[in-house]
């Protein structure tokens, strides 16, 4: 690990995090009376790369696999296929490398701050756990680091002896962020970090995250269902649907002129101030049955541009313009400059 760290200085443009062909299949266990339980492929063939210091937004609706992807990246869920490369070091190649192997480089911030903190531990003990187990720091070093962390997330040091239930949602999320930062990771996976918070508090936490990224040179994977939040914080975005990445590219470009029809649907569904409600697509349009995925494009059933060849095999993610890619055989025109409202 130390050798790798030494090299990063020389090759700073090299991705800090890469995944290739990453997939996760749940279920399929053998049953008592023969046969197998149905399998669900939650994530399929995800290939991503993230540059140091970058924020990659991952957007999608519930059931699209974004949380499973996030959990694989930090080692909470072992991948079924593919591999994860962290700072040039490959992990998780169908291995059982647990979070210990990941913890010093990549950490995770949970959606619900209240449930991510053990109700029976003081804030100090919560913050010390990674210092003890990942860094094996001694008592004075821990004391110093804990004080530093509280300062980083702008909480008063005397809160350290309090218990989680005494804090509001926004404060608890700050503690969650401090815990994630304790072992000085270089990457944070933020899984819907503000969606459990009210808007006024959401803004505080988003601003804190931007600030921390600048100060500590962090890399973020920011997972959210809220396109506006992703737009405010991320440089690049990956749109997920039914376990696959269907479109990636710089946030501005993708949101201004989406190439995948699903991205366009998402953009037009987001309620925006000043627009009238309009039926976005047919009501029967729902996700396909995950235990019996369709042979072709999973979005075909809802797609206004669907043609026969969409239903034969899943379309691969192909490059479309500078830094962009979309998994669509009949993409929207590149010059479609206006997002339909």
């Amino acid at each position: 690990m130390t050798g790798e760290r030494g090299m990063t200085g020389a090759a700073e443009t090299r991705p800090i995090l890469e995944t290739s062909g990453l997939g996760k299949t749940f279920g399929g266990a053998r049953r008592l009376l023969g046969g197998r339980a149905p399998t669900v492929q939650a994530v399929r063939d995800v290939t991503l790369s993230v540059a140091p210091g970058e924020t990659l937004g991952i957007v999608g609706e519930s059931g699209c696999g974004k949380s499973t992807l996030a959990r694989m990246l930090v080692g909470l869920v072992p991948p079924s296929q593919g591999r994860i490369t962290l700072e040039g070091k490959t992990l998780g190649e169908a291995t059982k490398a647990g979070p210990r192997a990941f913890g010093r480089t990549i950490q995770y911030v949970f959606q619900d701050p209240a449930s991510a903190l053990n109700p029976r531990k003081t804030i100090r003990r919560i913050l010390e756990a990674p210092l003890v187990h990942l860094l094996e720091a001694d008592a004075p070093a821990r004391e110093r680091r804990v004080a530093e962390l509280m300062d980083l997330v702008s909480l008063r040091p005397e809160f350290l002896e309090r218990y989680p239930h005494e804090f509001s949602g926004g404060q608890a999320q700050r503690i969650g962020i401090a815990r994630a930062l304790a072992a000085e990771p270089r990457i944070l996976v933020l899984d819907e970090p503000v969606s459990a918070l009210d808007v006024s508090i959401q803004a505080q936490v988003l601003n804190l995250l931007s600030d921390l990224r600048a100060r500590l040179g962090l890399t973020y994977l920011f997972i959210s269902h809220d396109l506006a939040v992703v737009e405010a914080i991320a440089e690049r975005v990956a749109v997920m649907y039914f376990g696959r990445v269907v479109e990636t590219g710089p946030v501005e470009d993708v949101f201004r002129a989406p190439r995948h029809p699903y991205t366009r649907l998402l953009l037009s569904s987001a309620p925006t101030i000043g627009a009238r409600a309009a039926a976005a697509d047919a009501p029967q349009a729902e996700l396909p049955d995950p235990t019996r995925p369709p042979p072709g494009c999973a979005f075909a059933g809802r797609c206004p541009n669907v043609r026969d060849d969409c239903r034969t095999s899943p379309p691969p993610l192909v490059p479309m313009g500078p830094g962009r890619a979309a998994a669509c055989i009949h993409p929207l025109p590149a010059d479609d400059a206006d997002v339909p409202a």
Partner: peptide
């Protein structure tokens, strides 16, 4: 006024958001 300012609006790009201090 401050609450509306907190809400990120699609199409306004990367930026710091206004927050309401206090509780």
């Amino acid at each position: 006024r401050r609450l509306i300012a907190c809400v990120p609006i699609l199409g306004s790009g990367r930026r710091a958001l206004d927050a309401i201090p206090g509780l």
